[in-house]
Write a protein that binds this DNA or RNA. Structure first.
Length: 594
RNA sequence: GGACCCGUAGCUCAGCUGGAUAGAGCGCUGCCCUCCGAAGGCAGAGGUCGUACGUUCGAAUCGUAUCGGGUCCGCCA
């Protein structure tokens, strides 16, 4: 048991059960053992007396007193005192508290792993950008949040699959094919001007970015002039559109994967919307829902207070989303007879359910917030309640440089691609910074601040703590030899000299890591990991700084071997916990600051 | 008109799913380096947690209402 909070909770529950034999298990389950806010209150506190007082018909304070007396008998507890409205504060025997250090050193980076996920199969879908252009900074947040969430869920025992849904079936992909075709015609030397070409494109020429030039060149190399007319003009679309579209999507997805790889993100599965349509899976699913009586032809009311100009009532194929908690029934067919995005997305989520996932987590942009309720309804309907769908919404990121906002326009220059961002500040800084805000809170990404070497930059502050740990361990290895300072050796070292308050503060923080991981995973909030690491780093730097005022608190004391080894164990455990946390964030720890 | 998200210190944000005197960084004020651990450190001021009711032993946290900001609202994805 490496989670001493869980261990103490079990002891409290046992003591409570002995005190109140008939206690409802549901109440016992509400017992918590949590860190105290104030060290003066001890190491931990439990609410056991307060949650069970009513059912027991006793006053919380009396029950707390009785519980405190009972807990005093525990081998791990030095002192148990009733406090406040019915808390029982626990001060652990230093031996019990320090025991987390060897536990960490033995567990290594696996420290904090848990079983709360119970092996449940969960699919985390994230990024899922249109393959119509390079990934930009908006996609970046979803990529980092999704990836970190997947790692976090895996750490607490979920069976996680990471997935990317390629939106390659809609009108935008047709527009992309036309745009690539334009670059192809240019590559073979068409006499057409861009305006002349654009005039012939249904819906106009939409994607004018330079990133399609290479694709046009590649098409020309592979197909010569066969995709154009004899005069290098626009051929009938059926002669080229499949070829151009497929080539372009493949090329864009290759670029997307490269960008993701540069960010350290690698999904396990890439699913194609187009494949669902082509295979007929989408239509089959719609018919299945129709068989369940969940589809009908009907007319929707226009949204109140905001009627579109071109609104006219029209019968549509509708899914009975309102039966599953949505506000309005949702259309599945466009007026041209093709499926709406939602229709295909139902089929896609049904496919995930068929593949055995019982928890579907979609990491979406906040502009998709209005889409969540219909999707959740669809998942409920398709799985007959066996699967649940959750959404993690990522709010917009504003990029700031030199105090000035960087505009997000697809037109020249000011478009911030994911690659630009990584090149500018580095992969680890991007990832860490993206996790320093709750996903559903807006974020300002200050390009200058994330590379600043100051305390208010958590990336630096946490890495600096790890580098300092490693530096001390290197010096320790010089002094005592590498064998003596290896984790396995330090795990066996006597620790009773670790008694100074700043040392205990670090130990208490380290002890809280498993419960922090579990809570973050259950709340689907990977940003909590970043905040934990910042707090741990702060505790560690404080300990380091004590050495400046009081030389006896410096880590390496050549003439006091036992003290030094104990401190090295503390430092090695700290470094391990930092690495454990950074691993969840997908950030590489550094050995030294440069 | 409706749905979802957000309102916490001057600023940027945490707050462990209902717990004790609401925290951190920046900024501000005052101290602390001849050198050996100052890319800093210590201390302090600063908040009726948007507002009002309610739920209960107890609310920043849950509910209702309301104000303010954001996102979205049939054939975009």
């Amino acid at each position: 048991m490496t989670d001493i909070f869980a261990a103490m909770r079990a002891e409290v529950q046992a003591a409570l059960a002995a005190l109140l034999p008939g206690l409802d298990p549901a109440i016992a389950a509400r017992v918590e053992v949590s860190p105290t806010r104030d060290p003066a209150h001890g190491d931990m506190a439990t609410n056991a007396a307060m949650v069970s007082a009513r059912a027991a018909g006793r006053k919380p304070a009396d029950l707390a007193a009785a519980l405190a007396t009972a807990l005093t008998a525990s081998a791990a507890i030095a002192e148990a005192t009733p406090a406040g409205p019915g808390f029982v504060n626990l001060r652990l025997r230093p031996v019990a508290l320090r025991a987390v250090l060897p536990a960490i050193l033995r567990a290594g980076i696996a420290y904090g792993d848990g079983a709360a996920g119970g092996g449940q199969r969960v699919n985390v879908e994230y990024v899922s950008a249109n393959p119509t252009g390079p990934l930009h900074i908006g996609h970046c947040r979803g990529a980092v949040v999704g990836d970190a969430l997947a790692r976090l869920l895996a750490k607490v025992g979920y069976d996680v699959t990471r997935e990317y849904y390629i939106n390659d079936a809609g009108a935008q992909v047709a527009a992309l094919a036309w745009a690539a075709y334009w670059r192809y015609l240019q590559a073979i030397g068409t006499p057409l001007t861009e305006e002349e070409f654009a005039a012939e494109v249904p819906g106009g020429l939409q994607y004018r970015g330079e990133y399609l030039i290479d694709i046009g060149t590649a098409l020309a190399r592979a197909h010569g002039e066969r995709l154009a007319t004899a005069t290098k003009g626009i051929a009938a679309p059926e002669r080229w559109i499949d070829t151009v579209r497929d080539h372009t999507i493949a090329a864009m997805m290759a670029a997307v994967r490269e960008d993701l790889a540069a960010l350290g993100v690698a999904q396990d599965v890439f699913s194609s919307e187009r494949a669902l349509v082509v295979s007929g899976a989408a239509d089959t699913l719609i018919e299945r829902l129709r068989g369940d009586g969940l589809i009908y032809e009907g007319v929707l009311e226009p949204p109140k207070g905001k009627t579109p100009d071109d609104w006219e009532p029209r019968p549509q194929t509708l899914f009975r989303a309102t039966q599953f908690g949505d506000d309005v029934d949702r259309p599945l067919r466009k007026s041209d007879g093709s499926n709406t995005y939602f229709a295909n997305d139902i089929a896609y989520h049904a496919d995930k359910i068929d593949r055995g996932f019982t928890l579907l987590i979609d990491v979406l942009g906040a502009d998709h917030g209005g889409y969540v309720s219909r999707l959740r309804a669809a998942v409920k309907a398709v799985s007959h309640g066996a699967a649940t769908m959750e959404a993690v919404l990522c709010q917009i990121v504003h990029v700031v440089k030199n105090g000035q906002p960087v505009r997000m326009s697809k037109r020249a220059g000011s478009y911030v691609t994911l690659r630009d961002l990584i090149d500018e500040v580095g992969r680890d800084a991007v990832r860490f910074t993206m996790l320093t805000r709750k996903a559903d809170a807006q974020m300002e990404f200050d390009l200058d601040a994330v590379v600043a070497q100051t305390r208010d930059n958590p990336v630096f502050y946490v890495q600096y703590a790890h580098a300092r740990c490693r530096s001390v361990l290197r010096a320790g290895a010089e002094m005592f030899g590498p064998a003596a300072t290896a984790d396995a050796a330090l795990a066996a070292v006597p620790l009773d000299t670790l008694a100074a308050e700043p040392e205990l503060a670090v130990i208490r923080r380290l002890a809280a890591w498993p419960r922090t991981v579990e809570a973050a995973a259950l709340a689907r909030e990977p940003h909590r990991i970043a905040f934990f690491l910042y707090d741990l780093a702060a505790d560690f730097h404080m300990l380091w700084n004590r050495g400046k005022d009081d030389a006896t608190l410096r880590f390496l004391q050549p003439d006091r071997h036992a003290d030094t080894m104990a401190r090295l164990a503390l430092i090695a455990a700290t470094a391990t916990a930092i690495r454990s946390g950074l691993a969840v964030m997908g950030v590489d720890p550094v050995e030294e600051m440069r």
